[in-house]
């Protein structure tokens, strides 16, 4: 170690090397500001009256603090029902996506041909632009009575379909890592294929399955395009936020945005390791 340090020290430092420190600081500042500014402004707007948000020149610090905006999310019928609908849609979508995605991930981990087919299918599903699916899907949903449904189940189904690839790829790696021999041992112990899945594979993938669940929940929670096109009167939070923002209710909009933001932030930050390893697995095959 010491010798290495000496070698390093003995080498001349280039001009470029001298700029590295400040450059890093600048880059890190951009990262921190890019994250902190929107979150700060959001909180500020959510806890101050509307008028203050429209002040010119803008107020940088909150002057009058109010809880009215935040309360309105839970008290105004429109906001509250959007919140409830969003939770319901995301919960159903998350559960379906996790159940089906876990199954798909397991099949992909166990048969090479299914892995290839699964990857191809998942890729195809991911290529399609939202609008190309949503418009004809609307026609179908109208026919089956799930368009703009008050329970949001049409939207939940489409969100589940969108999140299945995520759940499959998150669990796939864990299933692939389970030694084949364990399942053969269980087979010889007398277990059926389904029992092997339930008693041997799933318990070992618990963490990944839980990660899939929260991840697909949040994907649905965040999703805007399909929600805008399908829930046109029974709105979930994202389209409602869109209308509030475009038509000007800053306070409630900010409070609504804050309510949307908190779980999303918590989940993504908590799942950073999963996301990172997933990205590594995804790019290096």
């Amino acid at each position: 170690m010491k010798a290495e340090a000496q070698i390093t020290a003995a080498l001349p430092r280039s001009t470029a090397a001298r700029w590295i420190g400040p450059a890093r600081l600048a880059v890190e500042s951009i990262a921190v500001l890019g994250a902190a500014i929107p979150i700060y402004l959001l909180i500020k707007q959510a806890i101050t009256p509307d008028l203050e948000s429209f002040a010119w020149p803008p107020h940088w610090l909150p002057r009058n603090v109010t809880s009215a905006n935040l309360k309105s999310v839970f008290e105004l019928a429109e906001l509250r029902s959007a919140l409830i609908l969003s939770v319901a849609v995301a919960a159903v979508a998350g559960l379906i996506a996790t159940a089906l995605g876990t199954m798909l991930g397991y099949a992909m981990a166990r048969r090479e041909r299914m892995r290839q087919a699964g990857m191809a299918g998942v890729t195809a599903a991911r290529l399609l632009p939202m609008i190309a699916v949503a418009l004809p899907l609307t026609v179908v949903l109208i026919q089956v009575g799930l368009y703009d449904s008050p329970t949001g189940m049409g939207l939940a189904l489409i969100h589940a379909a969108l999140a299945i690839p995520t759940a499959a790829l998150t669990t796939y790696g864990v299933f692939a890592a389970i030694a084949r021999e364990q399942e053969e041992a269980a087979f010889l112990d007398g277990a059926s294929p389904l029992r092997i899945f339930v008693a041997i594979a799933v318990p070992q993938a618990k963490t990944a399955i839980a990660a899939s669940l929260v991840l697909s929940f949040i994907m649905s929670w965040d999703e805007f395009g399909f929600a805008l096109l399908i829930q046109v009167t029974h709105r979930t939070m994202p389209p409602l936020l869109y209308y509030y923002t475009v038509f000007g209710d800053v306070g409630p909009a900010s409070a609504l945005a804050l309510v949307m933001l908190v779980p999303a932030l918590a989940v993504i930050i908590a799942l950073r390791p999963v996301l990172k390893s997933g990205l590594i697995a995804g790019t290096q095959r």
């Binding site: 030694a179 021999e181 364990q182 053969e184 041992a185 269980a186 087979f187 010889l188 112990d189 007398g190 041997i200 318990p203 070992q204």
Partner: peptide, 17 residues
Amino acid sequence: RRDLIAMVFQNHALYPH
């Protein structure tokens, strides 16, 4: 033959959970 035969695997294949 699963009732007649048992197997010990290379890495023992114990169920880790």
